[in-house]
Structure formats: C-alpha cells, structure tokens
C-alpha cells in the first residue's frame, strides 16, 4: 500500500454523523460519509444516471440517490434498490490525527 495514494479529505469534524460531504480530487469526485461506526467513502456519482450523491439522504448504512431514489449500501457499495443496479465503487478510509484520508487507486 503506497503512502502517496492516501489523500487528505479534511478534518473529522467536517462531517456530521449520518451525513456526508463531497470531495473532489483531480478529475474524480467522491462522497465521504460519517456513520455511527466510522468514516466511509464511495464514488460521488450515482451509477444509474449522472447525478452527484452529495445531495442524497444518508440513512443507517445507506445512501439514497436524490434523483430517482436508487439506494446503495455505503460500506459495500452494493446497489440494493432500483433503479440503481450497478454497484457503487467504495474506497478505504483512515483517520489520522483527526484528519480523514481516502485511498485512491
């Protein structure tokens, strides 16, 4: 695991619990979530139609797309309710000195 692929997202207090923030890095965009048991990250764009999930609703471990209510499991990326059928890519997250990092391929 090379160190340079861990990208700093922001401080841990920048996300409310059961909520998310959008994070852009180079030409990629992500969602970073704070759930009750920690931080998670997925691709930012819904796999169904090109809309950002930053305006979606986080409920328990799920993110619901704001456009058509496709639902993904935040931890696994699994598409669990149509119209979404393609899984969402997930990323490793770590917290170091109150800073959130995600590992980008």
């Amino acid at each position: 695991m090379s160190e340079e692929n861990w990208i700093e997202v922001g401080s841990t207090d920048s996300i409310e619990e059961e909520d998310l923030i959008r994070f852009d890095h180079q030409d990629k965009t992500f969602c970073v979530y704070k759930l009750t048991d920690g931080f998670y990250a997925t691709d930012g764009i819904c796999t169904h139609e090109a809309v950002h999930l930053e305006d979606g609703l986080v409920m328990d471990d799920e993110i619901e797309c704001p456009m058509h209510q496709g639902i993904f499991n935040i931890k696994s990326g699994e598409a669990i309710s149509p119209p979404a059928c393609e899984d969402l890519k997930t990323y490793l997250v770590k917290v170091d000195n109150d800073k959130i990092f995600i590992k980008i391929d």
Binding site: V51, D55, L57, E64, P66, M67
Partner: peptide, 11 residues
C-alpha cells in the same frame, strides 16, 4: 436543478 430537492422530498 438536478439533485436539489430529492433529499428533502424523501424526508
């Protein structure tokens, strides 16, 4: 604009 009302409507 796309994405802006979905969360509130869902709630």
């Amino acid at each position: 604009i796309i994405g802006k009302v979905g969360r509130d409507i869902r709630i």
